[in-house]
């Protein structure tokens, strides 16, 4: 199963089928999500209208963690099995995940100011998400840091795997340490502690973000596959030039002999 998709041509065929559906899915859920988030959901009895920030903030934060987990897993697969597409998934996920983490931080700040009275506090949840953002940036920087592409892949994959330790820290930071941030209210063993009128826009926006991720991921992977083909052609050209040169050398020697 894993190795079936290591073949770029097969992957592209699969992407061709999925991409139009990802696009439709995203558009539909963005429209439905925004409708419920902005127009058809109540304001919070404590937080007033600022609760609407939640419909951007929480899905962004979920995606930040989801993307990082996927980035680390596919990095591991690329590292161990030299799976070409797994590396491309990791590489293409990184900028999208960094974008979502940035959004989680910024919208969190914009929510924190009116509700907590501060833009930022150095508590466990906020700090661990900031670390997540730097892990994404570090991953992106490391990939480009080496002339040898393979070394870049290896170094960044190792960083991604080591950084995975941060994911449970983010998840449980609100339980382990004192924080201004509220604890989990949707993903709980006892079921979501949030009213359905707020849960609906939240889930719709979460699905919209998920669809957006798949759509953009496929676009980026296509680009990466194109560059992979360019590199293969370049290598072949170098190889051909060398053998052409050797051939020339041979005929010259023959001429002399």
């Amino acid at each position: 199963m894993l190795h079936r998709f290591a073949n770029p041509t097969r992957f592209l065929r699969f992407a061709d089928r999925i991409q139009p559906w990802a696009a439709r899915f995203t558009v539909i859920f963005v429209i439905a999500g925004l409708y419920f988030a902005l127009l058809n959901s109540p304001s919070d009895y404590q937080q007033g209208e600022t609760v609407r920030i939640m419909y951007v903030h929480v899905p962004s934060a979920w995606m930040a963690i989801f993307c990082y987990t996927l980035l680390a897993i596919s990095s591991g697969v690329a590292l161990i099995w030299k799976h070409a597409i797994a590396d491309l998934i990791a590489r293409s996920t990184a900028p999208i995940g960094a974008g979502f983490t940035f959004l989680a931080l910024i919208t969190g700040s914009l929510w924190g100011k009116p509700m907590w009275g501060v833009w930022w506090v150095w508590d466990a949840r906020l700090t661990s998400v900031l670390v997540l953002f730097f892990l994404y940036l570090g991953y992106l920087a490391l990939q480009e840091a080496f002339d040898d592409r393979e070394r870049g892949i290896r170094a960044s994959a190792i960083l991604a795997l080591v950084g995975l330790i941060n994911v449970p820290i983010i998840k449980f930071s609100v339980d382990w340490w004192n924080t201004l941030h509220q604890p989990a209210s949707v993903i709980k063993i006892s079921g979501p502690a949030i009213h359905s009128s707020m849960l609906i826009p939240l889930l719709l926006m979460a699905l919209a973000f998920k669809g957006y991720y798949v759509w953009l991921l496929l676009i980026r992977i296509r680009g990466e596959i194109n560059f992979m083909k360019v590199r293969a052609l370049q290598l072949r050209q170098v190889h051909d030039d060398e053998s052409a040169f050797r051939g020339q050398d041979q005929t010259m020697n023959n001429g002399v002999g």
Binding site: S43, G48, E49, T50, I53, T107
Partner: peptide, 15 residues
């Protein structure tokens, strides 16, 4: 937005 326009709309705008 109940007086929170700056915060709510800039969140959606930046997103």
């Amino acid at each position: 937005m109940g007086g929170y326009a700056v915060f709510v709309w800039s969140s959606y705008g930046i997103a």
